[in-house]
């Protein structure tokens, strides 16, 4: 049902609207409204753990096709934000809209995944005891209910897609190796490959280049840039060179809410940002 409303316009966005461009726009759930080409809209999200507010009235908008970087000191709430979007954590208050109509706070993790949101965890999370190929096979977009997996067979078209992804993540010669035996960087890439197999419309990537070599990091940036436009990406990172290479709009999170938003250059000269983050 969500497919039609989330059709992406490939022309959309390098992600540069002025800050606040789409804030203040009233969303009417149930109504299809693509006039603002918004794919994700967080509205006043608050999450507290034993009274401590990990997210504090956080509001954020991601455009369709945008590549957005999120930075912020440890504990700023970046991972918690992804938990809220993917249904792992329920916010105390606030709402999260995927497109104009789907309220993610009312959906379960698998429903959110099937609606078109893929997530890469901060620590690579793959299936150690399955082969690289099988990891990709399970991730592949398909009917994921029990009765279909009982009789599913891989056809040649799917075989090709897996092979393509294997090449893309440079694990073509490791296809039948147990995923648990891969190096850290390779695991990161496998998880990214799994994400791509899901064919999500929105990709959430939590510190995707942590533990990668410079070369791997550079290739990851190229991959993400090639995805933007067709997909929307939200990337949490600490690696400033990597963020510079991605070149999109950057949001600074601090103590659970947005401190500043704009281009990296602009933010690096913003005294508030320097104080909490960059200046350290």
């Amino acid at each position: 049902m969500s497919d039609t409303q989330l059709t992406l316009d490939p022309e959309v966005g390098d992600g540069y609207g002025g800050p606040g461009e789409v804030f203040g726009h009233t969303l009417r759930p149930g109504e299809l409204d693509l006039s603002h080409k918004v794919i994700l809209y967080l509205e006043d999200i608050t999450v507290s753990f034993d009274g401590f507010k990990a997210l504090n009235k956080l509001s954020l908008t991601i455009d369709a096709g945008e590549l957005r970087c999120i930075i912020g000191p440890n504990g700023a709430g970046k991972t918690t934000m992804m938990d809220v979007i993917t249904g792992k954590t329920r916010p105390d208050s606030g709402r999260v809209f995927f497109g104009q109509t789907l309220d993610l706070t009312q959906m379960t993790e698998p429903e959110i995944a099937n609606a078109g949101i893929g997530r890469k965890f901060q620590t690579p999370t793959i299936f150690d005891r399955l082969s690289v190929f099988e990891n990709l096979e399970l991730a592949m977009k398909a009917d994921k209910r029990v009765r279909s997996t009982l009789r599913a067979r891989i056809d040649s078209e799917q075989q090709d897609r897996i092979a393509e992804t294997l090449d893309l993540i440079r694990l073509g010669d490791q296809a039948h190796r147990l995923a648990g035996l891969l190096s850290h960087g390779q695991k990161q890439w496998l998880e990214i490959g799994m994400l791509l197999m899901q064919e999500p419309k929105l990709l959430l990537l939590d510190e995707p280049v942590a533990g990668m070599t410079d070369d791997e990091t550079e290739r990851t940036a190229e991959l993400f840039l090639s995805l933007a436009g067709r997909h929307s990406l939200v990337v949490v990172e600490h690696d400033m060179a990597f963020i510079r290479q991605l070149g999109g709009k950057v949001t600074v999170l601090h103590e659970g809410s947005v401190l500043a938003e704009g281009s990296l250059d602009m933010l690096q000269n913003d005294p508030r940002v320097i104080e909490v983050y960059l200046g350290r």
Partner: peptide
């Protein structure tokens, strides 16, 4: 099933319940 044993949350975020 093996995937659930290895990393249940990953299975969920792939869209399996």
């Amino acid at each position: 099933l093996v995937a659930i044993r290895d990393a249940e949350s990953r299975v969920m975020f792939l869209g399996y319940n």
